[in-house]
Design a protein around this nucleic acid. Structure first.
Length: 258
DNA sequence: CCCCAGTCCTGCGGGC
DNA sequence: TGCCCGCAGGACTGGG
C-alpha cells in the first residue's frame, strides 16, 4: 500500500543516514520465509559494507539509497513494507537489518508483514534497466498537464486503470487514484479518450493537491494500521480521505449515508 | 498495444 | 466458538 506520499515520508524520515557508512547487512532471524534480496547476501555485503551513503531518493514507489560507489540499495515496499530507523511494529516480520556507523542511527531496518517486498543492490546500469524511463513514467509530483494528457489521452482504458500504470506515470496506486479522481470530479470508469482538456487540467491539479496534502500529513495509515513512518508513527491523511477505506461512513462531500 | 488471470504473501472479517 | 474462504492490490509473467 505505500504509494508516493508514504514512500516520500519514509525518504524524509531516513535522510539523517546520509553520510553514514554501511557496517553490515544481514537478514533478520525472525522472518519465517525470506523476502527477495538480490544479489545473494554475501555479494550484497561485499559491495556495500564500508561504503558511505551519498543520498536518499525516491523513484515512484521505491526508496533509493545511493552509495559512494554509485551502487544503489533499492527498497520496494509493495503492500506492507516499511523502511525504519526505529523499532518495527513487530519483531516477527523484520526482514533485513543494515547496520550503520558514523551517524545518529546505527541501524536501518526493512520490515514487511506480507513479505511481498524486496531489497536490491543495483549498479547504475541495472538501475536504468529496472527503473529507467522505459519502465517508469515521470513522477506524479513533477508531471505537467501536457505530459499527463499526451501519455494517457490516446488510450481506451478506464482512467482509474491508466493512473495505476507505472510506465505512464510513477507513484500513484489504488488509494490515491481514487482520491484524485474524486477530487477532480471524474468518474473512475471513464475512458481516457473521452476526457477533455479541462478534465486533464483538473485531474493534474487534484493530483498535486492530494499528493502534497498526503505528504504533509505523512501518508495514510488505514484501519489495518500497517503503514508507519521511519519512526514507526502512524500517518494522518486517512482522516482526510473522501472515498478510500470509507465504506459504511457518511459521505465526506454531502454528509449523507450510503 | 492492451487485457486478463495467476503468482507471491499474511491478516482480517464475513458467513455458516 | 472455530473454520474456511475471499479479499486486500503492487509488480510481474505468460498467453490471447
Amino acid at each position: 500500500m505505500p504509494e508516493l506520499p508514504e514512500v516520500e515520508t519514509m525518504r524524509r524520515g531516513i535522510l539523517p543516514i546520509v553520510g553514514s557508512r554501511v557496517r553490515d547487512v544481514r537478514r533478520a532471524r525472525c522472518a519465517k520465509r525470506p523476502i527477495v534480496v538480490v544479489p545473494r547476501l554475501d555479494v550484497f555485503r561485499r559491495r556495500a559494507v564500508g561504503h558511505s551513503i551519498r543520498s536518499v531518493d525516491r523513484s515512484g514507489k521505491r526508496l533509493v539509497v545511493r552509495l559512494d560507489t554509485l551502487d544503489a540499495i533499492v527498497f520496494e515496499p509493495r503492500m506492507t513494507g516499511l523502511v525504519l530507523l526505529a523499532a518495527p511494529p513487530t519483531s516477527e516480520h523484520l526482514r533485513l537489518r543494515i547496520a550503520l556507523s558514523g551517524g545518529e542511527s546505527d541501524e536501518l531496518l526493512f520490515w514487511d508483514r506480507r513479505g511481498l517486498g524486496s531489497v536490491r543492490l543495483v549498479s547504475p546500469g541495472e538501475f536504468e534497466k529496472r527503473y529507467g524511463a522505459e519502465k517508469l513514467g515521470p513522477d506524479a509530483l513533477s508531471l505537467s498537464t501536457g505530459e499527463l494528457r499526451s501519455r494517457l489521452a490516446p488510450s481506451r482504458r478506464e482512467i482509474k486503470v491508466a493512473l495505476l500504470d507505472q510506465r505512464a506515470l510513477a507513484g500513484v496506486g489504488n488509494l490515491y487514484a481514487s482520491e484524485i479522481l474524486h477530487r477532480a470530479g471524474i468518474h473512475p470508469a471513464l475512458r481516457c479518450d473521452r476526457l477533455r482538456i479541462a478534465d486533464w487540467e483538473r485531474m493534474l491539479a487534484a493530483m498535486r493537491e492530494v499528493l502534497e496534502a498526503a505528504i504533509r500529513h505523512e501518508g495514510s495509515t488505514l484501519s489495518d494500521g500497517t503503514y508507519r513512518n521511519a519512526l514507526n508513527e502512524a500517518g494522518g491523511y486517512q482522516n482526510y480521505h473522501r472515498v478510500y477505506d470509507r465504506a459504511g461512513q457518511l459521505c465526506a462531500s454531502c454528509g449523507k449515508g450510503s
